[in-house]
């Protein structure tokens, strides 16, 4: 009995996995998810940002400049997660040759890259009142800068290879190698910091932030993940439309929308 049950579970899992490989199936089921994540992102981000900007208590050391944390930390965290996701998508593409993984690999780059650049910029703006300089070679800043270069490498490689399928698989290899490297880069840069810099630069140094300070941060972090999910689904759907533009179902969809 349990044998057959586990068999049917594995069969339905397998069927799901195969369906996930079908762009059309993904296009048709993902609409509600995109809306759900979009609404969640809007609610969370507005709540967290207003709370952090106007209601969270002032930091006793940094004054009001610490409020930059509520936009800086979520963008920094999400940009690293996006790269990790692309590494995972690269693995899936190379092992199972799933079309959707290839699309994730190309659709996630603009979001990840813009978030990395944004985190670097807000970090610099935060650094000016806190450290007295726009740019400090601090461990986290430097890791983020290297991450931006990694994103740019993925972008440039895709631009350089004319054939889409080849470009996708080349990017998959690069994203995988990059993902393996990220922890080593972070460790080495941290180690380098202890060599070159006095260890007084701890941005979120307050060991125990009161809940009124960290709850809005948590809300914004969750919000930006929801935003990424909605944005990724939107870009995936667009990529699907572009790559399948000559198929019956896409042409029917276009006629339906115009009618």
């Amino acid at each position: 009995m349990s044998m057959s049950a586990s068999l049917s579970v594995s069969q339905s899992l397998k069927a799901w996995w195969h369906k996930l490989g079908s762009p059309r199936w993904f296009y048709e089921i993902s609409g509600p998810w995109q809306r759900l994540f979009g609404v969640l992102a809007l609610v969370l981000l507005v709540t967290g940002t207003v709370w952090g900007l106007a209601f969270a208590p002032q930091d006793y050391q940094q004054g009001n400049s610490f409020r930059i944390m509520y936009v800086h930390v979520p963008t920094a965290i999400v940009s690293q997660s996006v790269y990790m996701l692309m590494g995972a998508a690269g693995l899936v593409l190379l092992v199972w040759r799933m079309k959707l993984a290839d699309m994730v690999l190309s659709a996630a780059v603009p979001f990840g890259m813009s978030m990395t650049a944004c985190a670097l910029f807000t970090g610099a703006v935060w650094g000016k009142p806190t450290w007295g300089a726009w740019w400090v070679w601090d461990a986290r800043t430097t890791s983020m800068l290297v991450l931006l270069f990694l994103y740019f490498g993925l972008y440039a490689l895709r631009q350089a290879i004319p054939r889409e399928e080849t470009a996708g698989r080349a990017c998959a290899v690069l994203a995988l190698v990059g993902t393996v490297n990220i922890p080593i880069i972070k460790y080495s840069v941290n180690w380098w910091l202890t060599l070159h810099q006095p260890a007084s630069f701890t941005l979120t140094g307050a060991p125990s932030m009161p809940p009124s300070m960290w709850v809005p941060l948590l809300i914004n972090v969750l919000g930006i993940y929801c935003l990424f999910a909605a944005n990724l689904i939107g870009r995936l759907k667009l990529t699907i439309l572009e790559r399948e533009r000559n198929t019956q179902w896409v042409r029917a969809l276009v006629r339906e929308v115009s009618a």
Partner: peptide, 10 residues
């Protein structure tokens, strides 16, 4: 150079 140099950082 773009692809490899960031990986050389450590």
């Amino acid at each position: 150079a773009l692809l490899v140099l960031p990986l050389y950082v450590p």
